[in-house]
Design a protein around this nucleic acid. Structure first.
Length: 431
DNA sequence: TGTCCACAGGAAATACGGGGGT
DNA sequence: ACCCCCGTATTTCCTGTGGACA
């Protein structure tokens, strides 16, 4: 009887949700789930709505010389994340490839995406892999060898070679070597006409580059501004049409999301995320997307952001955060001072079996927590009773306890690792 | 008006750890 | 396998400071 009751409940719940479906095609709310052709389709609609049309025009002008057999210069794109640098270029490249095919102009396009920070060696290695010139090495191959392989992979190609280097600023230790290879050596050593397109999130990327290379680059620049509310509305409308059932979004919802997003970041991906989150909430509630739900979704995203940040934060910052929370619990106030927080920090370290850092370093951790918005703090002078930093914890209780449990979890995992003895062969051998 | 608290936060020294070269 | 180098984290040492209080 008990089980059938539960069965019925689950069944009803599912039935209920399914009948109120407002999400018709969830994949359109998450770019990673779209296959290439669908992505292109979405892009095409976005660009047709005149979003990023200026940038598109700029690209067209820049690459126009190709049609006349001339050699365009290199190009650099700047703009914050989610401003559409990658998508715009890829979309444009698609069109360019089509045109060249029609006009029988030999063209080769490659997209080197340096998504995460990596040294020069791995960047070159990735490029070599992209050109099918090498396998992936950890080490054991010299930089020169990699360069040689890249060159010989291109030795037979005489047309235009457009290399799109995405997120160049991610190349660490010896960016100059990497850049000078691309800019100075490669064009000289291959028969094709090389056109480099760099994209970077950091506007000052060029500043810490060897000036000789900068002069060689003769780069044309193209700045991608954050999306404004109108652009975002276009982008969102297309997603809504593709992903949701008709009338799923109440009036004003798209405008609201666009306005919030353009005010906060102008990042299209985050805007779509907010839409997706709102839709999920509505789906769960069996209603349509209301403006209220958007607010709630924004709160949820905000919470997740904090939770994520604390999860990946350095251990010292986590410990400092835990100390602040503990201090507040003890004193039953939301305000606390450096000294008392440090005391709780030391207790916490004892429990977590880690060595506490000196007070000076601890202050820096507190500062960082302020910087990342976990707490608000200011210097307070209490006259004879000294000066101190007053730390105020303003996150809501729910979030605080979530953060606290994340920290505890992290430290428990850390404890499990045996102290500085060599690993005993108790775990299955990892190679 | 001077004192003095309880820290802030800068500078330099030192420790650490990973990666590269030989 | 070994060493060196370099960037980052931490420690050590230090000087500075707003204002309550005597």
């Amino acid at each position: 009887m008990e089980t059938s009751h539960i069965k019925k409940k689950v069944f009803d719940e599912m039935e209920n949700v399914a009948s109120h479906d407002i999400i018709a095609n969830a994949r359109y709310l998450n770019d990673e789930q779209l296959i290439h052709s669908e992505q292109l389709q979405v892009l095409e609609e976005i660009f047709n709505a005149n979003v990023r049309s200026e940038e598109m025009t700029h690209l067209s002008r820049h690459f126009a010389p190709i049609l006349k057999g001339n050699h365009p210069t290199h190009l650099a794109l700047w703009g914050k994340t989610g401003t559409g640098k990658t998508l715009t270029v890829r979309f444009f490249m698609g069109i360019l490839a089509e045109m060249c095919k029609k006009k029988k102009i030999p063209l080769r396009l490659e997209h080197l995406n340096l998504a995460t920070s990596r040294p020069c060696f791995r960047a070159l290695n990735d490029l070599a892999c992209l050109l099918n010139a090498s396998r992936r090495y950890k080490k054991g191959v010299s930089l020169v060898e990699l360069m040689y392989r890249i060159e010989s992979a291109l030795a037979d190609f005489e047309g235009y070679f457009v290399l799109f280097v995405d997120e160049v600023d991610n190349v660490r230790t010896d960016q100059d070597t990497f850049m000078s290879f691309l800019v100075r050596r490669l064009p000289q050593s291959i028969p094709g006409k090389l056109i480099l397109v760099f994209a970077s999130n950091k506007l000052n990327w060029r500043d810490n580059l060897d000036p000789r290379i900068v002069s060689f680059l003769k780069i044309r620049e193209l700045l991608f501004n954050p999306y404004n509310a109108i652009d975002l509305q276009h982008i969102l409308k297309i997603r809504v049409k593709k992903a949701l059932t008709p009338d799923a979004a109440e009036s004003g919802v798209i405008e609201k999301i666009a306005a919030m997003s353009s005010r906060d970041h102008g990042d299209a991906r985050q805007a779509v995320d907010l839409l997706a989150r709102s839709a999920e909430l509505a789906q769960a509630a069996g209603s349509t997307i209301s403006i209220d739900l958007v607010d709630r979704a924004a709160e949820e995203i905000e919470r997740d952001k904090y939770a994520d940040m604390i999860r990946t934060a350095p251990a010292q910052m986590q410990a400092a955060m835990a100390a602040i929370i503990l201090t507040n619990q003890k004193t039953q106030k939301s305000k606390s001072e450096t000294g008392e927080i440090y005391e709780h920090y030391r207790i916490f370290c004892q429990q977590a079996q880690m060595r506490p850092v000196a007070i000076r370093a601890f202050r820096d951790s507190l500062n960082e927590l302020d910087l990342y918005g976990f707490v608000r703090s200011r210097i307070l002078s209490k006259g004879r009773h000294g000066r101190t930093r007053e730390v105020i914890l303003e996150l809501d209780e729910q979030l605080v306890s979530k953060i606290y449990s994340i920290i505890l979890l992290n430290f428990q995992l850390r404890q499990k690792r045996p102290p500085k003895t060599k690993p005993v062969n108790s775990s299955p051998s990892v190679n």
